[in-house]
């Protein structure tokens, strides 16, 4: 059992089963809607987790990349009648390029500089989306045409559940492979001690930049899918608070754990729906939960629970 859970393919299989069987428990479109949001948030978090958990850097601007992807899809399809998939690809390439340009000089430095730079970048993106009204519709947002596959219009929550779920599974598979590859080993060395890694001849900057670009592209893809799934997008998606939300999901679920990122995204997407019954006390409860988890499970949920499970099973901690 332990071997099964630890095995890469085993975990992916479990996740696939969950995604495949979940619809049996979803009674109506509202639940599908929450599920889609969860899956797309998880897609961002799987990418962001590579950066936070493995490259040891924080981004406080990933919502900016998410929104750029979304608006690339929205604007190119709505205003220029592009094919939705082409728009999505252009968004991903553009965001990747932007991430590369920003990260290259900054990631040579250590510490929280990337956090600060991404914070600034995210806010600038948010301001531009708010101000360029003729193009983006400004703060009120804009409608997004349906994604078309040939003559087939992809609309409806059920279809989007499968698209989001499928994309997430592919993304998780990619992330797991990346972690197990040479890049991943280099990153783990880097997380341990950057100087030691450098002494061993690893070009740490190159790997950090690569991971940053990959995580930005994941966010852009999620943004594009979100725009088509919801058929509407507003600049709130680029907001600072959204960026914080993504980081929180990763940390809550467990850093350096791909499945943790998925769990974190699920909890923070579903929790606010559960807390609405508290009305005015919603924010107090949310803040308290966040603090509590971080104090009592500082490694995040999945790694902590995994440790407990191992402990109970009599295994020795790694």
């Amino acid at each position: 059992m332990r071997r099964f859970l630890d095995a890469r393919t085993g975990g992916l299989l479990v996740l696939t089963l969950i995604v495949a069987l979940l619809p049996l428990l979803l009674p109506n479109k509202f639940y599908y809607d929450v599920a889609i949001k969860t899956l797309l948030n998880a897609l961002v978090c799987v990418g962001l987790n590579l950066l936070i958990g493995y490259a040891g850097q924080i981004s406080l601007g990933h919502a900016g990349f998410f929104a750029l992807g979304g608006y690339a899809s929205a604007i190119l399809t709505a205003k220029y009648q592009w094919n939705g998939f082409a728009a999505m690809a252009v968004g991903m390439v553009g965001v990747g390029l932007l991430a590369f340009i920003v990260a290259r000089p900054i990631l040579k430095l250590r510490g929280h500089y990337l956090a600060m730079a991404t914070l600034g970048l995210g806010i600038i993106i948010s301001i531009v989306l708010n101000r360029e009204i003729p193009l983006t519709g400004g703060p009120d947002g804009m409608s997004v045409p349906a994604l078309r596959l040939g003559e087939w219009r992809l609309t409806g929550t059920t279809i989007w559940y499968w698209i989001s779920g499928g994309t997430l599974l592919v993304a998780v598979w990619l992330a797991l492979n990346l972690i197990d590859s040479g890049v991943g080993r280099a990153l783990r060395a880097l997380h341990g001690s950057e100087v030691a890694a450098e002494t061993a001849g690893i070009d740490t900057t190159r790997y950090k930049v690569l991971i940053f670009v990959v995580s930005a592209v994941f966010a852009s893809l999620a943004g594009s899918l979100f725009a088509h799934a919801e058929r509407f997008i507003t600049p709130t998606e680029a907001g600072f608070l959204r960026s914080i939300e993504f980081v929180t999901m990763v940390v809550l679920g467990g850093m350096a754990s791909t499945y943790g990122a998925v769990v974190g995204a699920t909890i923070l997407t579903v929790l606010p729906q559960l807390l609405t019954k508290l009305h005015d006390y919603e924010h107090i409860a949310f803040g308290a939960v966040l603090i509590g988890v971080m104090i009592f499970m500082p490694k995040g949920l999945v790694p902590t629970l995994k440790d407990r499970f191992r402990h109970l099973a009599g295994g020795r901690p790694r």
Partner: peptide, 25 residues
């Protein structure tokens, strides 16, 4: 085992949400 800087950042974010909630109520 101590704690990471990111964890502390999340704690302060949680605190900011909590404080805003309390003032609002």
């Amino acid at each position: 085992g101590g704690t990471s800087v990111v964890t502390l950042i999340i704690i302060t974010i949680g605190a900011s949400i909590l404080i805003r909630g309390v003032i609002q109520v």
